[in-house]
Computed example of a mutant assay.
Amino acid sequence: MRWPQVFFWTLSAGVFLLMQSCAAQSHLVEGELQTVTKEQLQYYLYYPENYFSSDTERFGLLLFLHGGGESGLPFEEVKKYNPPKLLQEGKQFPFLVLAPHNPHEKKWWNIQAVMQLLDSVTAENRVDKNRIYLTGLSRGGSAAWQLATQYPNRFAAMAVVCGMAPLPYAHWIDQKMPIWVFHGDEDDNINVEESDAMVEKLKEMNYDVRYTRYKGVGHNAWDRAYTTDSLYTWFAEQKRIN
């Protein structure tokens, strides 16, 4: 396993607004106002052991988005849970793992910044663009659903753990992308009905979706989901069909 040092990524995005004169004037004035927003993301990037033994082989990449519990806390908290924790304990993955940090305690993930980070890491490493996988839990699970709806042509497979689901936009998700959903039926933070309804809708539309609904489990469904070895085997078997 190789964990590089902490990396930083800053997003600068321009937003253009159309300006016009007051209604009392008899002519129209048009212009553009550019507003620049910046987002700094720290992240960990894991490389498989055999990554550096070849100069040509390309690898898959798993993008992991943590939940609200780590948001706004010191960056090192990311390594204490879920896939990053497994890596710290010595687990080997056959693909790269990209684990950014949401620096805001009470803000959603900035998915535009996440995608620009993903694009940069993909371009600078030997990543197979047809084997980019997506997963997230709780607030990160909600962000994973967002990414799947707004960037439907990017991911080879997705696993969502106890995340709020954008049911009205289910049809925006690429029907060729396999999905695995995990949720506990005693979740008091994000009701299991979020996943129930989303999975039912996806199945009605003939999506390839699996559902693991844990009986007697609360919001911490991630403890079981991310220690399910078959999840990572399943990821590694997926390749995007263009």
Rank of each mutant, 00 (worst) to 15 (best):
E76Q: 13
S138F: 11
G60H: 12
R131C: 06
D128P: 00
C162V: 03
F182T: 05
L117N: 06
Q175T: 04
S138Q: 10
Q112C: 02
V97P: 01
Q116L: 07
P103I: 05
R58W: 15
K79P: 01
H66D: 11
Y47S: 07
S53C: 05
H101P: 01
K107G: 01
L134G: 08
V114H: 11
Y43S: 08
F52R: 02
V78I: 14
A156I: 04
D128C: 12
P74V: 07
M115K: 03
L41C: 08
T122R: 05
G68A: 15
P103N: 08
E70T: 01
W109Q: 07
F155H: 06
Y81H: 11
K91F: 13
S138H: 06
L61W: 14
Y133R: 06
N125E: 13
W109Y: 12
V78R: 09
I173R: 04
N102G: 06
L63P: 00
S71F: 13
N102V: 01
L45C: 08
N82T: 01
G67K: 02
V97A: 02
A170Y: 11
Q116K: 08
A170S: 11
L73M: 15
F155V: 06
P100A: 13
S54L: 12
V121T: 08
L98A: 13
N102K: 01
L167T: 08
D119V: 00
Q40L: 10
I132L: 12
Y44M: 11
E89F: 09
F95K: 05
P166R: 09
E70S: 11
M115H: 04
F52P: 00
F59S: 07
L63V: 03
L147H: 03
F182K: 02
E76M: 03
G68C: 13
G140D: 11
H104M: 03
H66Q: 13
L137S: 07
Q146M: 08
Q150S: 07
V121P: 01
Q92A: 05
P100H: 05
S54E: 09
S138W: 12
N102M: 04
H171T: 10
L65W: 12
L98K: 00
Y169Q: 15
T149Y: 13
I173M: 15
F182M: 04
H171P: 00
V181Q: 05
Y46R: 04
I132G: 02
W108N: 12
L147S: 10
S54N: 10
P178V: 06
P94E: 14
R139P: 01
K80F: 10
N50V: 06
N153E: 15
M158S: 07
L137E: 07
A157N: 02
K91V: 09
W172A: 09
N153Q: 13
N82P: 00
P166C: 14
L167I: 14
E105K: 11
A143E: 06
P48C: 14
L117F: 03
W180E: 09
S71H: 07
N102R: 04
C162F: 13
Q42F: 09
L73K: 11
E70M: 12
L61G: 04
K80G: 10
F75Y: 15
E89Q: 15
H171K: 09
V97N: 02
K91M: 14
L147I: 03
A165S: 14
